[in-house]
Each structure stands twice: as structure tokens, then as C-alpha cells.
Design a protein around this nucleic acid. Structure first.
Lengths: 195, 195
DNA sequence: TTTACAACCGACCCCTTGGTCGGTTACAAT
DNA sequence: ATTGTAACCGACCAAGGGGTCGGTTGTAAA
């Protein structure tokens, strides 16, 4: 057979990129098709409709990529330092275009959660996973932290601030803002320690 | 004449609401027209095209509303307390639907800044205004604050976190998350004081 | 009363979109 | 060599988008 899995993957990858750049609704199937050099028939052979294609991108591309990013940052000996390094690495290593496009997953969440139930549930699930990941690992080193910490709350705050900084730099199309806000986020993190 | 200004305003108001709910691109002129009970001719009499209508909503509705919200919160005797109260009021007083729709201005920024230069410039301008507003008022009470504070950076962080919390609750469609993150943001603010 | 024009109307246009469907092609199994 | 079928093709479709334009209506000024 012609390599079906490869075709599927190509569609998925290109879709992920197009959706990152233009958003889900604004991404047209024809633009994906053109980039893949694949026919519409092929696309609809692998995915029943656009929405399901979106779900697949969310589940098979964005979510794994996202968790693979956060996991090592937080499962390290000192998660506070791990997070700071992760954030700073992101602000130095990422290209300007990447930063300015925003976090692909966050973008998709913003756009789709209110519109489509299928997306909403997937998002909710992933959010809880991420929150637990962070909260548990902070709790693990709670001896080094201030006594009054609500771990779940702090975990949500970290994610919110990170996405906020990504959003800010996206809406101003200016990477420097990202760095600035990340700096302050790191200071907040350091302040969680008891001293 | 039939009250032209009133017609224009009605179009603007309804557009603002539709755009808040569905985003700029996803908002169709026909849906606005239907709600206003105004003809397409009337709309195109007052606005040259959809983009300009968007600009008008941004400038005449969102921006003033936005600044009117933040200004009093920060120009009060104690801006730290002012901000905390503002945030908490927002989390208690706002309806669930409102919260879950996200900040209208932030939504529009996310959606349009990368796509359209006209929006980008307006957004940039407004962002700087807001940042200065906050930074100046924090600096005003710098005697009460920690000595190591970078006011611009902190101001951006506050806005980013606020929008982040709004985004988080939007993407999970859950108001409680908003309250949680706002709580942590207030704690961060209190921590800016020197003690 | 006439006139001039801003304000408004809505049928129409073209374009793009997601989605369909009858047909073709490559390959594995028999 | 034959056959069955997964994989793929692309012309076609209806719906909805933004935008146009010739025409009508209300009203203030002359």
C-alpha cells in the first residue's frame, strides 16, 4: 500500500502548523491540502471532518508536545529552579516568530473552548493533568517552601501567568515583553521559598 | 434626519457584544444586522468595511471601557489594595458568562494583532498606556514597596497574570478557576510590600 | 412647495468554505 | 493472472461570507 500512516501524519503536522499560525477557524482545508500536496479525498479518507482533524491535532500533536515540555521542568530535584530555567530557556531559545504566535495549545483553547464541547472537554482534561503535575511536584518539596502555600492555586497561577506572558507578547507582537514578564514570574517563583 | 448617531452607536454596541462572544472573524455582518434591525446599507453608510468597524469598536467601546476599569483601581491612595479589590470585585460581581467569555479586549488582541497591522498598532498603543498607568502609580508609593522592584516589569506581569487568569477560566469554561488565580495574584501583590 | 442630500434599504455579486461522491490506482492475497 | 479493497483523486455542491449599487425615504433649508 501507499504509506497511509505517513500521509496521515503529514496532514496532521501541516495542520498543526497552520492552526498554530492562523487559528483553527481561519485555517482552510485547502491551505493544508496545498502544503501537503495531498488531495481532499485523501484528507477525508483519514478524517471524517474538520473538527475531528482538529481533535486529532490537539491530542496527537499539541498535548504530547506540551506535556513533554513541562514534565522535565518540574520533575527535577528543585522544581522552582526547573521551572525558572524552563521559562528562561524558552525566552532565549525560541525564535521571535514562535513567541509571537503564542502557545499553540493556549491559542486553540482560547479559540475553541467556548464554541465546541468536544474541544472543551479535551482542554479541561489536559488542564487538570498539567495542574496536578505541577502541584504534586511543588508539594514534594514543600519543606523548602513557605508554609501558607495552596499548591493547586499556585500551580494554576503559574500556568496562567505563563500563558499571560505569551499572550501579551503575541498581542504586541514583541518578544521583549515575553522576556520581561518571564523575569517577574521567576522572581515570584523564587519568592515561594521560605527564607 | 433620522438619528444617524444613534444608529451608528447601536451598530457599535451590538458589534462589540457579538465580537466579544464570537471573535472578530467569526462574527458575521448579517448577525449584527439582524440584532440591530438595521440594513446592510445602513452599516456600510457608517463604516467603510468590516475592518474599520472593528477598529471603531476597539477605539470607541473596548479601550475606554478598559481604561475606565483600571484607572480608579490604581489611582487610589493604596494602589496595591486598589488592584486587589478591583480583581476580587471582578471575580465576585461578574456573571459567569462574562468571565467565561474572557476579557473582550484581550480576546480581540489575541485574535487580530498577528493578522492585521491596524489592530496591532492600536493594541500596542493601548498596552503602553495601561502599563504606564500602573507603573507610575506603583512608583508613587514606592516607599511602601520592596526596594528591588522594576515597576514596568511588575506592571506588565500584573496585566499578563490577569489576562492569563481570564484566559484560563475561558478555556476551561469555569469561573472558579478565575477566582483561584485572582487570589494568588492578590497574594503576589501584597508581597510587593516591604515588611 | 420645492429641492437637495444624508440616511437607509435590500437584491445581487463573487469568492471561499467545508463537505460529497463516483471513479481510479496501487498493492496484497489467492 | 485475478481479484478485493484500502488509499487516493478532484470536479462538484450548497451555504455563507464581505461588499456593491441603484433606488427610496425622511427632513432641513431655501
Amino acid at each position: 500500500m501507499r504509506d497511509a500512516e505517513q500521509t496521515r501524519q503529514k496532514i496532521l503536522d501541516m495542520s498543526a502548523d497552520e492552526i498554530h499560525k492562523h487559528g483553527f477557524t481561519a485555517t482552510s482545508l485547502s491551505s493544508i491540502l496545498k502544503r501537503c500536496k495531498v488531495s481532499k479525498g485523501a484528507l477525508y479518507h483519514h478524517f471524517p471532518n474538520k473538527m475531528e482533524l482538529g481533535y486529532a491535532v490537539f491530542e496527537e500533536i499539541y498535548t504530547p508536545m506540551f506535556l513533554a515540555m513541562w514534565k522535565p521542568a518540574v520533575e527535577v530535584d528543585d522544581p522552582i529552579e526547573g521551572l525558572c530555567q524552563f521559562f528562561k530557556l524558552m525566552s532565549t531559545e525560541s525564535s521571535c516568530e514562535e513567541i509571537v504566535c503564542g502557545c499553540p495549545l493556549n491559542n486553540l483553547c482560547q479559540e475553541m473552548s467556548a464554541i465546541d464541547e468536544g474541544f472543551r472537554l479535551r482542554i479541561l482534561n489536559m488542564q487538570q493533568q498539567l495542574n496536578q503535575l505541577i502541584a504534586i511536584n511543588l508539594q514534594r518539596v514543600s519543606a523548602q517552601l513557605r508554609p501558607d502555600i495552596d499548591f493547586t492555586q499556585v500551580a494554576y497561577f503559574i500556568v496562567a501567568s505563563f500563558h499571560g506572558s505569551s499572550s501579551l507578547s503575541k498581542s504586541s507582537q514583541n518578544k521583549d515583553l515575553f522576556t520581561k514578564v518571564i523575569n517577574e514570574l521567576c522572581q515570584y517563583l523564587e519568592n515561594l521559598r521560605n527564607n
